[in-house]
């Protein structure tokens, strides 16, 4: 016993137990249960029986599920690209010597701080068919003569939820990229200026390459969060109109809990995993570690 208590390995194991239990309880168990349910025909109030891949086969032929997949991809790709472009632009702006710099940086973080449900409600008002401030302003300016039906038309609704997601996601990207920008030594820009680089060439040859590692990390996170988004959609549209804004996450919830089809909902949720894994692998192998970052004095 005495020896056991002094053994590094044994003590290591002992200290890992609490974390391990927490992981098993709150991560592995729900995930495992979800995967298991996906292979059963469980309904609310009825333990399911093993049905193999039946749920997946059904979903493959289900037009709503296929629409949800399309919506999710559209939502993720468009929102991520917009968030990246706007976030990088904001980060570059905030990296300049501006008056009230600290204040501006704090303001930029605001959308990130507000709880999503709350900001979603605010957007809901902005997009309201009758009371929309946006429509009101545009009519007052004389640019439109009828109020826009933001959430009533399928494509309007898609773009509207994308806009809300972008508004919410930009601060995270901008602040992270700003942190990355500040690690770039100003003398590199001076060296580049003397070497004859225009500001655009400096951005292209110095800023962007040195920012790639942090871009890879932040965009991976952004893609994962966007792909699995639920709150915003659930508050704004609940997937409507005509399932035009149903994402895989919202559809899975709708099928499983209000719809009661636990097996089917779980299968839909599990179907998201391969996409997420692909995104992670892409960033891990494709972007993250560059040769020039690796340490060591010998190649």
């Amino acid at each position: 016993m005495e020896r056991l208590l002094h053994s590094r390995n044994f003590l290591g194991l002992v200290f890992m137990v609490p974390a391990g239990v927490l992981l098993l309880l709150f991560l592995t168990y729900p995930l495992g249960l979800g995967v298991w349910l996906g292979f059963t025909d469980a309904k609310v109030g009825r333990t399911g029986a093993w049905v193999g891949l039946e749920n997946y086969q059904f979903l493959l032929g289900d037009s709503v599920a296929r629409l949800a997949l399309f919506n999710t991809l559209f939502y993720t790709v468009v929102a991520s690209v917009l968030k990246f472009v706007l976030g990088l632009w904001l980060a570059l702006l905030l990296n300049k010597h501006l008056p009230f710099k600290a204040f501006l940086r704090a303001v930029v973080l605001l959308p990130f701080i507000v709880p999503t449900a709350l900001s979603a409600i605010a957007f809901w008002w902005l997009y309201d068919a009758q009371f929309s401030v946006l429509s009101w302003v545009l009519t007052r300016l004389g640019w439109i003569d009828r109020y826009i039906d933001f959430l009533g038309d399928p494509w309007n609704a898609r773009w509207s939820v994308v806009a809300a997601n972008v508004w919410r996601g930009v601060p995270f990207i901008a602040i992270t990229l700003l942190a990355g920008l500040q690690t770039i030594s100003p003398s590199l820009y001076e060296a580049a200026a003397i070497d004859g680089a225009t500001p655009w060439q400096q951005f292209w040859n110095v800023t962007l390459p040195l920012l790639t590692p942090i871009i890879a990390v932040v965009m991976t996170f952004s893609v994962l969060f966007t792909f699995t988004d639920f709150q915003l959609i659930y508050v704004l549209t609940r997937g409507g109109p005509l399932n035009a804004t149903h994402l895989m996450a919202t559809l899975a919830f709708q099928r499983a809990i209000p719809g009661g089809a636990l097996g089917e909902g779980s299968a839909l949720a599990v179907a998201m995993v391969p996409f997420l894994l692909a995104a992670i692998l892409f960033s891990y192998f494709g972007l993250q570690r560059r040769k020039w970052q690796q340490g060591g004095t010998d190649a």
Binding site: S185, S187, L188, E190, A191, A192, I194, N205, V206, P209, L210, R290, W292, Q293
Partner: peptide, 11 residues
């Protein structure tokens, strides 16, 4: 110009 911290492009 040769800079104090060399200012080599790390990438």
């Amino acid at each position: 110009m040769v800079f104090q911290n060399y200012a080599l492009y790390p990438h």
